[in-house]
């Protein structure tokens, strides 16, 4: 069953002294409950825009988004968006613990103390026990992104929308975060939509990969990875199926010059 549906979603931006620029053209996509789906595309193809529309942070120019069957007009309570720029999405004046408590402290019936308790639980889940009293700037980039993940988890979402959350950290930290993300996804029965330009990341983590074209972007392909679960983010990279998919998707990304020349799967 689809928990998140995009139906003929279009987005155009006003262009200076000309007709509006069409960024995405009638994108339809149904994300199944509990799946890990990646949206893969070249830089500037509007992947993040698509995710923001799905998160209710930006209205589409045309088309509809539904979460759990309801049309999205603002950020739905089921979904939480995790930003690429972890350094900018955390509140610099709050400690790590209070940054995570941010996700729940405004909810009715939750005291400040309770919010902090819940925050500590999530910090433990991302292996940041003992860092609650630090300020974000005292942590490395990878750790800051884990704070952002803990904050998203604290909201107890059904859907996590991840906007290139692993792109700004070094390769080793990235693998570490991949493992963590897979573990969290498996344990919590989350639905994850990940936006990335990293083919290996998309294949290693996902059940399905949606490949976007350049602007105006459409979905060129929708590939089932068919890789086994539970999965190790490192070991999976040595399987023949992984290599095959990696080759296929890289090929598609590199040779796809003209927009919209793919066949929708």
């Amino acid at each position: 069953m689809a928990i998140l549906e995009l139906e003929a979603v279009e987005k155009s931006f006003p262009a200076r002294g000309g007709p509006a620029m069409l960024a995405m053209d009638r994108i339809s996509l149904a994300v199944r409950e509990g799946e890990f789906l990646s949206i893969l595309g070249p830089s500037g193809c509007g992947k993040s825009t698509l995710l923001q529309i799905a998160a209710g942070l930006m209205p589409p120019s045309a088309g509809t988004v539904r979460v759990a069957g309801r049309p999205v007009t603002g950020p739905p309570p089921e979904a939480v968006y995790v930003f690429q720029q972890y350094g900018r999405s955390l509140l610099p004046w709050r400690t790590v613990r209070d940054n995570v408590a941010f996700a729940v402290e405004h909810r009715p019936g939750i005291s400040k103390a309770r919010a902090r308790e819940l925050a500590d639980v999530q910090l433990a889940a991302v292996a940041l026990t003992g860092f609650g009293d630090h300020f974000p700037w005292q942590l490395s980039g990878g750790m800051q992104q884990r704070v952002a993940l803990a904050r998203a988890l604290a909201a107890e979402p059904k859907i996590m929308l991840l906007d290139e959350p692993f792109s700004a950290v070094d390769a080793l930290t990235r693998l570490d975060l991949h493992r963590l993300m897979l573990e969290l996804w498996e344990k919590r029965g989350l639905t994850v939509v990940l936006v990335t330009h990293d083919v290996e990341e998309a294949v290693a983590l996902s059940d399905r990969v949606a490949l976007l074209t350049k602007r105006p972007s459409t979905i060129a392909r929708l590939v089932e990875t068919g890789l086994p679960r539970p999965r190790d983010a490192v070991e999976v990279r040595e399987t023949p199926r992984f290599l095959e998919l990696r080759h296929e998707l890289l090929d598609a990304l590199l040779t796809r010059h003209a927009p919209g020349d793919g066949h929708a799967a």
Binding site: L57, A79, Y81, S89, W93, F102, H106, R151, A155
Partner: peptide, 26 residues
């Protein structure tokens, strides 16, 4: 920063609360 405001929105913060707890401190 727009990102801070969007972070507040995606976590279900209302405008008044975001103003007081995000915008003013920032």
């Amino acid at each position: 920063d727009r990102v801070l405001l969007d972070a507040a929105r995606t976590h279900g913060w209302g405008t008044a609360r975001a103003l007081w707890h995000v915008v003013l401190p920032a």
